[in-house]
Design a protein around this nucleic acid. Sequence first.
DNA 1: CTGAAAGCGCTAACAA
DNA 2: TTGTTAGCGCTTTCAG
Lengths: 366, 366
Amino acid sequence: MANKKTNPAIVDGKAPERMDIRTIARAANVSIATVSRTINHVTTVNPEIAKRVWAVIDELDYFPNTQARALVSGRSRIFGLIVSEITNPFFPELIQGFEDIAVSHGYEILVSSTNYDPKRMTHCIRRMLERKVEGVAVMTFGIEEPLLDQLAKRKVPLVFIDVGPKRPGISVLKVDYHHGIRQGVQHLAALGHRNISFITGPARLHSAQSRLTAFSTSLKECGIAHNPAWVIEGDHTMEGGIIAMERLLATKQMPTAVMCSNDMTAIGVLHKLYRAGLRVPDDLSVIGFDDIHIAEVTIPPLTTIQMSRFDLARAAVTALRAHVEQPEDAKREYNIQTDLIVRESTSVPCGTAKPKMAKAKSTGKS
Amino acid sequence: MANKKTNPAIVDGKAPERMDIRTIARAANVSIATVSRTINHVTTVNPEIAKRVWAVIDELDYFPNTQARALVSGRSRIFGLIVSEITNPFFPELIQGFEDIAVSHGYEILVSSTNYDPKRMTHCIRRMLERKVEGVAVMTFGIEEPLLDQLAKRKVPLVFIDVGPKRPGISVLKVDYHHGIRQGVQHLAALGHRNISFITGPARLHSAQSRLTAFSTSLKECGIAHNPAWVIEGDHTMEGGIIAMERLLATKQMPTAVMCSNDMTAIGVLHKLYRAGLRVPDDLSVIGFDDIHIAEVTIPPLTTIQMSRFDLARAAVTALRAHVEQPEDAKREYNIQTDLIVRESTSVPCGTAKPKMAKAKSTGKS
DNA sequence: CTGAAAGCGCTAACAA
DNA sequence: TTGTTAGCGCTTTCAG
């Protein structure tokens, strides 16, 4: 009784129940192969016929089954995106860009946040592998080895930030931390600051190290002494910023300015200073890093170093696509710039030019 | 002549190239059906054999191809999650919870933000349909009709916030705005405020309307007059909060307290007041809504009404799973509570005697 | 340029 | 309890 592919819709005259490629083929009076070619814009299809097929597709409101497509073609058209923690505003802004760009190129994205938990990381890699992602952007500012092995073993194209193994299929987004951080230090130096503290990110994160290194290098460039007691370890969270600032307040000699490894830390610092009754920037200047959206409205608005989420997202997608679509001309490295954004959390050192006012009132505004 | 499924790996003695179910079956000396049953924990499999199969699976580091599985079973195990804008901190916190819970039940999630753009919305529905999501949580605080039609037509289970059509396969998360907002108004009233302003969300969003209604109702309950001039339309963004506050500052008679439809608006308000040289809560009390993470460290820390992202996420996943797995006992409605969190942005009205310590769960630290 | 047919890797009857 | 087999909906040779 070999009825070929037995689509009931075809057997009797009733309205097709299953909206599949066969239904379209039948309605357009062509073979499923032709429908497939039409959908995939294969140029050898007779334009007349293609038009007819499209008409049917539109009329019946048909769209191909992605699962089936992926299964047979081996291409899922999904990119994975792993971030440290989605609740840090930096990441949603990055995700947004990544999504927009990926989607505009026909890819879907699978986001997952690891919360710095190796277990989660492993699990999330596994999920991505199961869903057969065609590439993964690891935007965690720090590489976990086991992760890498799992992914590399399956030969999934990867993009990292800052550092990554030099291997085919892997690209790295090189962030020029030094450029922006030097601007920040110079800005502080120009204001007259000589005693500058730095609150780092988690010590094991490579990007946090890079930022710290950029800071001390810049300090040297400005001929400013580097006081190790003023380097406090934070963890890129507000809470970490608060704790770090507490520790800083407890030191013998206070700095006149603080640079933070990211904006969330700076927000924590601002908060702690507020609690301590200290004014920013009158008593202490504060500089952040990232330039997340809310940095514009902190009190006072945060002077910070901008790292473009959009550039990061675009470079990541570009790299991944290159690996998938034209492996030969996939670049190994992409450069990302950073730049100082001066707002109002920086000023001359305490006791310098501006006379202290008795009351903490509004500081200079635009 | 029918070599069965011709897996080259099986033909010769070399290491298997394709890691599929057949490779496992062969290595474990069973049929692929048995492997499939083992993986799916079908109880009729002989424990001895199952053990052997699992051993092989572990050894070869095999995992099933999700695409194939989805294709044949008709179950993608993907839930869609649509949010308004991922860059509003409220949403990442919700996404995080949704992801955690969904993943713990074996579902993957596809997130997309509409940015209040109907075009994006349509496109994103389409993408979800193509990926064959088994359900969609529409966490946009406002329904767009066309969206609904598209999804409903395909009979995809849906979860909405606040309102949604009463139809099988659709659940609604009823947020009890009134409970928390009344607490807020009472808190203000107890402090002595009689002149209270409300900055709304986008007028077309149902949730924004509900919050406003809850506000005016609560006002009446406290016997406070409702002054329409003090109801300003915002848009749930910081910028909107700034603009709304500007308009409020321009009114003839200023209120002594402001309630905001969400925390981002409140943050904008705080910023504008800072700019205007006004102190919070001395000159004006401010209350937010949502209790996003940074509300704890705004300056001053924000008194706000908490709506649990985690409860929302859990209810959404629960509802979706119910529709998929036990349609008969899927609930139509789920209730979400809201509660006042008193911090430091509220105090007695300007000009009143001495501020007294606010009671309730104050989070005053050091 | 178009159609027939062979699977992609897996699940789910149906047999044994 | 286990194995055999027929597809899920689509892409892709390979003929015609």
